[in-house]
Each structure stands twice: as C-alpha cells, then as structure tokens.
C-alpha cells in the first residue's frame, strides 16, 4: 500500500498547476466533466494537497486558491440545491476553464510531436561572424546592463565624490564623440570605464537610450555574452533643443 501511496505522491510534481491536477482527478475518477460531483472532487483535491503537505512539499499559492474556488462552488451548490437550470450552475465557469485548458494540453502535445520531428533537422549554420542579436527585447537589454553594473562594481575603488552632477546632454555628446565613426560595433562597457561615479554610469545609460531614440546610434547585444555594443549612425540633429534634458 505504501508504494502505491508513494507513486501517487511522486506524481504530484508532474502537474502543471491546479487545473492540470483537477483534470487528472476527473479523468481518474471517471467523472462527467459536464456534471462534476463537486463534493467528491473537493475531497480528492484536498487529500492530494494534504499528501503534499505531509511530504513537506511547498504548495504553490495557485493550488490553495483553487481549493477556495472549489469550496465556494460547493457552498453555492448546497444552498441552491439541485437546480435543473444550467445557466446559473456555479460549476460552469470552472468547467469552461478546464475545457479550455484541456484543449491547450492537447495542442501542446501536438506541438511537441511536431517538434520531435522537425526540431531535429538542421540547416546551414549561421556564419560565425554574425555574433550579434539585433532583435533585442527589454529583458535582454536590462540583463546586459545589469551584467555591466556587476562588472563595474568589481573594480570600484573609493574615490572622491564628484561634486558636479553630470547632465544627460553632456553625456550624450561625449558618448557620441567616443564612438568610432567607422560604424563598427563598439562595447558600451569601454565607455563606462572612462567614467568616475555610479551616477555617471546611470547618466550614460540614459544618454544611450536617448541617443537610440534619436536615431544617432544603434545598439546590438552580443549573443550569449549579454554585452551591449553601440554603432555610431549619425550626429545629433542640429536643431535639437537641449532644454528637454536637465
């Protein structure tokens, strides 16, 4: 008996959340999804959670939330008694969710099958020189900047606090002057090394974003290394009003 229990318990971890667990229980107990015996389902569900607790597994908040949803439905059904009208059946929203989730599970299985076949086909590899990701998302650029900050921290030495607060305007000009004009990617980190304080680094980051927005530079992220590279495109527009940046 113990081994059977253990098997049950070990299977808990393979569930992809409370909906998955509920579907499993409904199928296992051969319940009719359109007429779920809520009381039995709640019992089963609770005993699963109890087993998880006994094993000291941490239970995700979503499982507890689902329990409260189930109890709510159970309570409503007890008050209402057996009603024939399907429309105000308190189980309906949950059933719809379960069915939608089951659909996704099937589609996920199909995708997995396709991937098993086509994920293992290979074409000419992209050339080594193509090192940069151009289609960068926000997570990558933030992560890249975080890595830079970490790297900078390692070499930070105590120094005099600079009294002068750098302005974004000045920083934009000096960053743009710093970049090589041959349109080759240049590591942003190398520019940051010339700066003295954390405040200047942050200002430089903001200036970089501003220059990107104005189209004066382009940024790339080195694949796998999360390093920001910048490419000089053109000078700042002459009629740019600096008053916007303080």
């Amino acid at each position: 008996m113990a081994s059977l229990e253990e098997n049950l318990i070990f299977s808990i971890e393979k569930f992809q959340g409370p909906l998955d667990l509920l579907l499993h229980l409904i199928r296992k107990e051969e319940m009719d999804i359109f007429d779920i015996p809520v009381i039995r389902l709640v019992e089963q569900y609770e005993s699963y959670l109890q087993k998880m607790r006994d094993l000291n597994l941490s239970i995700a908040a979503e499982y507890i939330y689902m329990l409260s949803v189930l109890l709510n439905i159970k309570a409503k059904m007890l008050i209402k008694g057996k009603s024939e009208e399907k429309e105000d059946d308190p189980r309906t929203p949950l059933v719809l969710k379960l069915m939608e989730y089951e659909k996704i599970k099937k589609l996920a299985d199909e995708l997995k099958e396709i991937y098993t076949i086509w994920g293992g086909t290979y074409s000419r590899e992209e050339k080594e020189e193509i090192l940069f990701i151009e289609d960068v998302n926000i997570y990558q650029i933030v992560e890249a900047f975080n890595n830079i900050l970490k790297k900078l921290k390692l070499r930070e030495k105590p120094s005099f606090i600079s009294v002068k607060r750098p302005s974004i305007k000045e920083m934009m000009v000096s960053l743009l002057n710093f970049l090589p004009k041959n349109k080759k990617p240049f590591p942003f980190y190398d520019f940051l090394l010339t700066l003295k304080s954390g405040l200047e680094v942050i200002t430089a980051f903001l200036s970089m974003l501003e220059l990107i927005r104005l189209g004066s530079i382009k940024y790339l992220i080195k694949d796998g290394k999360d390093e920001i590279y910048l490419i000089y495109l053109k000078d700042l527009p002459k009629d740019l009003i600096f008053g916007e940046y303080s």
Partner: peptide, 26 residues
C-alpha cells in the same frame, strides 16, 4: 514550455496575465 507556446501560438498577441489565467498557474 509547450503549453505556453501553444497558448501564445494560437492566441497571439497575448499578455502574461492572460496566459496565466488559461494555465491557472504562473
């Protein structure tokens, strides 16, 4: 991953809260 990919592929564009709502978990 396949579940989330299926949700996104069939419902794009979609936000993370909407994906979480379908899967019932973060």
């Amino acid at each position: 991953a396949f579940e989330v990919l299926a949700i996104i592929a069939y419902n794009q564009p979609i936000t993370i809260p909407e994906i979480n709502a379908i899967r019932g978990i973060s």
